[in-house]
Design a protein around this nucleic acid. Structure first.
Length: 476
RNA sequence: CGGGACGUGGCGCAGUCUGGUAGCGCACUCGGCUGGGGGCCGAGUGGUCGCCGGUUCAAAUCCGGCCGUCCCGACCA
């Protein structure tokens, strides 16, 4: 036993170190020469591609089309919506030289694309017949961050941003909520991450929005992660960028807009929610590889085991499963077991001489470590039900954790104690003033993560004034 | 951007205090034996010691500046 093998730090021992090690050991991402800019490696990108496909299907199903808009935004465009520039100003990166010429007007690398897209929309939208305009783009954006971590906060990140235009305020609000629901479904059904949905407080609202809605997840260390947001932009951008149309009464009126985004940050969330001391754990519906076959051979029967494993591989692939076979001859089975667990592959399929003799295979699930012997005949079916069990179990465990770490605070003392010692979500009434919100933030570092749709009346813990339910947590 | 720690082959580290021309484990390459929870033996490849400058006969080591990383705070998907 050589102990010098690079071991993953225990999650409970040093969560931050665990996270960084996992990202690199599982080959999800790697550091580059510029701060905050990471390479997403093939395995990490495969996860992103699965998320993309899942979301994209949902966008298409709700009537959206994909398009692409420019990377560079003239300063003057960005400045048109006052709140918006102010919000993003500290994180902008600028292009000031083109070729060898100094530019007359500097160009911002998009931190988000509202301003450039609205400029196009002001031309594209002329009549109520042009509405609704339902467009999404998949792209990279850049925000000059001071403290960065792979996936969770990088200067450059990948995301999608939907930008829609509507004739009425009601329609825009419906769209905003519809897309919030699309995100929630993706989290619940595919990522197995339970999220709370609700409204942001004015202080946490997107710069330039009338209302921001959010999906908030709870990470394994008790901190919240804003996982996706959907904004009702009202007419703020329409007025700033002159997006008007002739309605059915022949009146020229300003349009209503929405925007909504979901980023590679969620991969960080996935790691933090499901990862354990053995490494990553990917829910089957998301996993690039649902099952990996590890052949167990001895010198004399290597050829036989190999051909059986290949046959099994073909069978499982033919049944529509995403299966990989690990025929590497350099590593021992034990080494492979650890490696695939680190990568979070939901199921391992072992096949060796004993199994061939008994016409069976061994299935080992990543979420519980349970092992079972399954006859070869029914293997694809059994694997399929096992994968769906795992999906369900991962969602159930994450939900139980979330619920066990959602606490009601009856007094401010209790509130502070929970945040300091247990973290998690804290449910408490808020009087709606920025003053109490700010005070809580200064005292406890907890912020209002969201205002749920269903809010109860109660006395604010700080001011004693009447308020309504808010959900607090320390956030990433 | 403040406080602290750290930058030495791909990864993890020793060497720095007390200057003398770079080492260990893993990984990687080749050969052989192995293989049901990170196997073993043998032979190899790979480093201008983060960057720039200074002190010195001589710098990974001492001094200055810069860059980067990590942890803790202030701002953010």
């Amino acid at each position: 036993m050589v102990e010098a093998v690079e071991k993953l730090t225990k999650k409970s021992e040093d969560p931050s170190r665990w996270y960084l090690q996992l990202v690199r050991m599982a080959k999800l991402a790697d550091y580059g020469p510029v701060r905050g800019m990471f390479a997403i490696r093939p395995y990490g990108f495969a996860i992103w591609e699965r998320i993309q496909r899942d979301l994209d299907d949902r966008f298409k199903a709700t009537g959206h089309q994909n398009a692409y808009f420019p990377l560079l935004i003239p300063e003057s465009y960005l400045k048109k919506e006052a709140e918006h520039v102010e919000g993003f100003d500290p994180e902008l990166a600028w292009v000031t030289i083109g070729g060898r010429e100094k530019l007359e007007e500097r160009l911002a690398i998009r931190p988000t694309s509202e301003s450039i897209i609205c400029d196009f929309y002001s031309n594209w939208v002329q009549s109520y017949r042009d509405l609704p305009l339902l467009i999404n783009q998949w792209c990279n954006v850049l925000r000059w961050e001071k403290v960065t971590r792979p996936f969770l906060r990088s200067s450059e990140f990948l995301w999608q941003e939907g930008h829609t235009v509507h004739a009425t305020a009601e329609e825009a609000r419906e769209e905003t909520l519809q897309m919030l629901g699309v995100y929630r479904d993706c989290f619940h059904e595919t990522l197995a991450i339970p999220v709370l949905t609700g409204m942001k407080s004015p202080a946490e609202r997107f710069a330039g929005a009338v209302e921001t809605y959010t999906c908030e997840g709870l990470m394994g260390d008790g901190r919240a992660l804003q996982a996706a947001t959907s904004h009702d932009l009202g007419q703020n951008f329409a007025k700033a960028f002159d997006i008007t149309f002739l309605d059915e009464q022949q009146d020229r009126v300003y349009a209503y807009q929405t925007s909504w985004g979901f980023s590679t940050r969620v991969i960080g969330g996935l790691i933090l929610v499901h990862g354990d001391d053995r490494g990553l754990k990917i829910p089957p519906k998301l996993a690039p590889v649902e099952a990996v076959i590890v052949p167990i051979w001895r010198g004399k029967n290597k050829a036989e085991v190999r051909s059986e494993a290949e046959k099994l591989h073909m069978e499982l692939k033919a049944s529509g499963l995403r299966v990989e076979a690990d025929f590497d001859e350099e590593h021992s089975p034990g080494w492979k077991f650890n490696e695939h667990e680190l990568r979070g592959v939901p199921v391992r399929v072992e096949i060796g001489p004993k199994d061939i003799e008994k016409n069976q295979a061994v299935l080992v699930r990543r979420d519980t470590g349970e092992k079972e012997f399954v006859p070869r005949d029914g293997l694809p079916e059994r694997l399929r039900t096992l994968l769906s069990d795992i999906q369900e179990n991962m969602m159930r465990q994450a939900t139980e954790f979330r619920d066990a770490n959602t606490r009601h605070a009856a007094s401010y003392d209790e509130f502070q104690e929970i945040i300091a010692q247990k973290r998690g979500f804290v449910v408490a009434p808020w009087d709606g003033t920025p003053e109490t919100e700010q005070k809580i933030k200064e005292n406890t570092k907890a912020t209002i993560r969201l205002l749920p749709f269903d809010r109860q009346e109660g006395a604010d813990l700080v001011s004693g004034k009447s308020g309504k339910t808010a959900i607090f947590a320390r956030a990433y």
